[in-house]
Write a protein that binds this DNA or RNA. Sequence first.
DNA 1: TGTACATCAGTGAACGCGCGTTCACTGATGTAC
DNA 2: TGTACATCAGTGAACGCGCGTTCACTGATGTAC
Lengths: 246, 246
Amino acid sequence: MCAIISSVEKRTAASIRARVRAEMIDEIKEAARRQLATEGANLSLRAIARELGVVSSALYRYFANRDQLLTALIIDAYNAIGAAGESADAAVTERLDLTGRWMAVARGWRDWALAHPAEYALIHGSPVPGYAAPADTVAPANRRVLVVAAILRDGVQSGVLTRARTAPELPPIPAPLNAELKAVSAGLGADADTGLTARAMIAVIEVFGALNFEMFGQLNNTIDERGAWFDLQARAMASFIGLPEG
Amino acid sequence: MCAIISSVEKRTAASIRARVRAEMIDEIKEAARRQLATEGANLSLRAIARELGVVSSALYRYFANRDQLLTALIIDAYNAIGAAGESADAAVTERLDLTGRWMAVARGWRDWALAHPAEYALIHGSPVPGYAAPADTVAPANRRVLVVAAILRDGVQSGVLTRARTAPELPPIPAPLNAELKAVSAGLGADADTGLTARAMIAVIEVFGALNFEMFGQLNNTIDERGAWFDLQARAMASFIGLPEG
DNA sequence: TGTACATCAGTGAACGCGCGTTCACTGATGTAC
DNA sequence: TGTACATCAGTGAACGCGCGTTCACTGATGTAC
């Protein structure tokens, strides 16, 4: 905190070293991501080292072990798909066009998934055996959902999304579940009643279910019009949530 | 067809051999399933053989290679979850209680998934790298969806599920997608218009999305009331489809 | 019923390969005075 | 500016282990006559 930098030379030397180090970390992760695509989540450190033209033990300068590299990839993937949703949302100029924003987010997620299938599988597919996700993955994972919470909040606070408008009634919600939904809404800052929260969560789950079906091959020989099918689903979910049309 | 059996002795001898063989195949698959749970889809034939107290090359009497064993497990899993849905449906005596049947099917799937998490992951998780599912998996995979198609058919043909009743309007469906949905409905014998077909598919996708979230750990630290949450989702989807209340 | 032959399950050795991780080390680069 | 020391990246050998698949084989069981 104090004595951050004592001279320009020191700062330059130190930061060069840091930059080179960061670049090496990126190269390792990129090689690992390339491997994910062909080999799945069973990363081989030796193969990564080989690809980088380096001896396998050299990687231990950058990651304590295989699991730590895997964790880094998972965090990156959550952040990347989260950022894809966020920037798609941000590109919608009419901020009160809630359906438009929701559609943008959903398509942003899908575009990212199509562009990065292996990383998508890493975070939405089967858990890696013997790997327990550490706590650092929680915040990045939440980014996917925070964008949706922001849409709800903007809708509620502007009055565009009124209780009356949120037409489709849900079945009665038992008290303990209701309390949990309330906590979710509060935690995300959605400012939504539990019915709206539940409907939005269902919509998000449907959209990721749709992506799983598409990415994991369950649509093969059934639906080829994948973009149209995805749009139809996302749009149906917008009205299921109760978002007003744009 | 002709000369099936020429004497009682022959039949007994041959069928004993066949039965012993079938039992061995079952034991191999069971050991493999146990391994799935701890190691994921990266089956080790040597470990399976070890567990059975047999030399690893002995397994090649029963499966041509590792992929063929994996295929057998996948087919079994599809059949098992399909059967779980079918028998849950069959247990509902009031056949025109469409919502009751839908809920039974959804819960039947979930119960099976909770009891067989590794097999669930095998069919709904990330594709196994380097493994291409052969055509024999298609029919078993369809069993999951055929039950739902039967519910729709029973509803439409009995008049319980009328077009007017299927309230929630979907966004307009582009023609090419509409044609594909028609083909899906026809292929499954659902006897449903494309709107109903699309809503039912969306509901199924939501339910499997919900199962993926639950099975793959995305509900951790968020929702503990998992049974209630699943029921709420499935019930919401029943009314999304337009099924009349029981 | 008895004999000759065919089928089949399982063995054990081998081929050729992979892996994560540790450890003592070299040599370059950066830091402090 | 120059020297002594510390930091750090990367090496190369080793440990101890794993794997799928092939192949020639033994021996038991079943079949045909």
